[in-house]
Amino acid sequence: MNKSKHREIMRYLIIGVLTTVVYFLVRFSVFSLVQSGLLSVVVAQIAAILFAFATNKWFVFQNQAKDFQELCHQFVLFCLARGFVFLLDIGITLLTVEWYSAFFISIMRLEQLDYTTGLFTLPFLKPYIGNPITLNAFIFALVTQILAIMINYVLSKYLIFKKEYN
């Protein structure tokens, strides 16, 4: 792998982590306000998509649109590509947080953890992992985001921000 590709992947991973941070902050802030897994996913996905488009376009792939029409075309493609991950996120959330959370909490034995010690007591983490319900939601949100980073890199590089000479 040449240095240019290596740098691109490193930039993508940095932006992927930052996008994940944006996603988690928005998702769990909304969740703490409204206690709705689906609404928190929708709002977090919108925030993450807007952040990811701008940072991937200009920082990761260093892509300059020729005109406003090309920029709009890229944004629509980006949103459509991210739609797959959005649907994946909603599906995983429905199954693991909304419909069968008790099952997943039980098989992962999350109800047996001591939420009064260690990481669970840190003020900045407690809202996200401080009880079995939020920890279950956090675990599956993390799984989804790891999948999202991998899928979105391929879609962005080879579909949305592809170089003309590729």
Rank of each mutant, 00 (worst) to 15 (best):
G130P: 10
K126H: 10
R109L: 11
Q112I: 07
L88N: 06
A102K: 00
I133K: 13
L113E: 07
F124Q: 00
E111C: 08
P127F: 02
G118L: 11
L95K: 04
D114H: 12
Q112F: 08
I92V: 15
I90C: 12
L125F: 14
N131V: 13
V97N: 15
P123M: 03
R109T: 07
P132L: 06
R109M: 11
M108A: 04
I90F: 08
I129F: 08
G91C: 14
W99Q: 14
L122C: 11
L125G: 12
I105Y: 01
L125W: 10
T121M: 08
F103D: 01
T116V: 02
T117N: 08
L110R: 02
I107T: 13
I133M: 11
L119K: 11
T121N: 02
T116G: 03
I105G: 02
D89I: 04
G130W: 02
L122V: 09
L94Q: 14
I133C: 06
T121L: 09
T121S: 11
P127L: 01
G130D: 00
D89S: 15
A137W: 01
N131F: 06
V97Y: 11
E111Y: 06
F103V: 06
F103M: 09
L135H: 11
F120K: 08
A102L: 01
I133V: 15
T121H: 03
L113Q: 12
S101N: 07
F104D: 01
N136C: 15
L135Q: 10
I92R: 14
I107P: 15
E98D: 10
T96H: 10
P127D: 07
L119Y: 08
I105R: 03
F104A: 13
P132I: 08
N131E: 12
E98P: 04
G91P: 05
L125A: 09
L110Y: 09
I90L: 15
L125I: 07
T121I: 03
L88K: 05
L122M: 08
P123R: 10
V97A: 11
T93Y: 01
I107L: 14
I133W: 07
L122I: 05
W99K: 15
S101H: 12
P132A: 03
F124K: 00
Y100R: 14
Y128Q: 02
P123W: 02
P123E: 00
P127V: 04
